[in-house]
Nucleic acid binder design. Sequence first.
DNA 1: GTCTATACACTGATAGAC
DNA 2: GTCTATCAGTGTATAGAC
Lengths: 220, 220
Amino acid sequence: MSPRSQKLNNQMRSQTLAKIDSAALKVFAACGYHGATMRRIAQAAGLSYGLVYHYYPSKAKVFRRLVDFALTGSLEAMQQFMHASGSAWERMTAYAAMVVSSLFAGDTSLYFVIILQAMTQGRAIAGLPAHISRMFGRYYELLVPVIKEAQASGEAAPGDPAALAAGFFSMVQGLAMLTFQHQGLEERITPALLVNALRNPGYVPRSQSTGRPRPSGRKA
Amino acid sequence: MSPRSQKLNNQMRSQTLAKIDSAALKVFAACGYHGATMRRIAQAAGLSYGLVYHYYPSKAKVFRRLVDFALTGSLEAMQQFMHASGSAWERMTAYAAMVVSSLFAGDTSLYFVIILQAMTQGRAIAGLPAHISRMFGRYYELLVPVIKEAQASGEAAPGDPAALAAGFFSMVQGLAMLTFQHQGLEERITPALLVNALRNPGYVPRSQSTGRPRPSGRKA
DNA sequence: GTCTATACACTGATAGAC
DNA sequence: GTCTATCAGTGTATAGAC
């Protein structure tokens, strides 16, 4: 019970917890919330079945923690880029570049899959749908003003900024799914793919204001 | 056993089967494959539990049939538009318009959710992941040539056409998820949102060839 | 064709030994 | 802290009455 051994215990504890989290992330992503079993998670973590319940009171809590991690992690990364310096358009492009590169680094794409699992099967977990809605609302609150700013400068496409944000998020989620299922997409998926979805096709940089209409009809 | 009664029986049979399919679609979409139970499906269909097994040998087969329906339905709709007349760009825009409007009609968005469920939890069903990959391959085979054609005319954005197609599909899937969870998005989500993701920002219709470079750097 | 009742396997969660 | 053994509950699939 000396302070020394206590510190070691804490270290061991967090290490085991990390093993559980990592294993649960993989199993949940592969099988879904209901499809995953605590036995499988324990096995993937290389631990005994009962030990998982020493760290988590229930399967729902394990899942919930991963979802929280994914949601808050995404929000913080987004905040970091949206509150940075530079024009609105520059911040959006920088953010898109970060997102795409992160899809191929570590377990990031797994967290996107977890969010998707939570959206499609999270009704069984009390309060989870509301929590997701709340967090998504914060995403929009963060992104919409920047999109509006980029629309004012003419760089972002006109129209409902919230819809633009929704399209952006949708593409990110979908691309994460693809990278999760197939490998070797690093060179095919580029930030330009995301940025282009936000771009105003009629934008003329800042010199020649020929006043020509946008290339193609918008309501087609 | 007269032909008359046999015909009536067939009619009843297909009617009951339709009830099961419709109920299963809703339950699977709401709970996921593993989260859905056969009891719930029977209850939603207004039928007894055992009767469902008179029409389907297993839960996996029910799900599999819905997935097949969704995948082949999407493919046929896509074929219809891609093989239509008009320029490649016109066909793509017409297809995008159809997709967006279908998201708000009937159970279409539910089928998109089913496909997503199959992608994220379908490993438990033998042969399903392979089948999905195969069908997705056919989507690409159908779409990529049209995108290439639209790139040649300058209307579609340059770059890997398969990646463009992937981004397009990703956005469709994500928007379907949103319309499934929240209602009243009919006016916010427009075909332009999808079309814009494919558009070449540097395209100049066909008159003034000022030769100016594309508005913004592509690798940002 | 339709229903009820049941066998069997599996999973989440707990108890208790080391 | 870690493990094994166990219980209660649930879900799939089947059997058999009507």
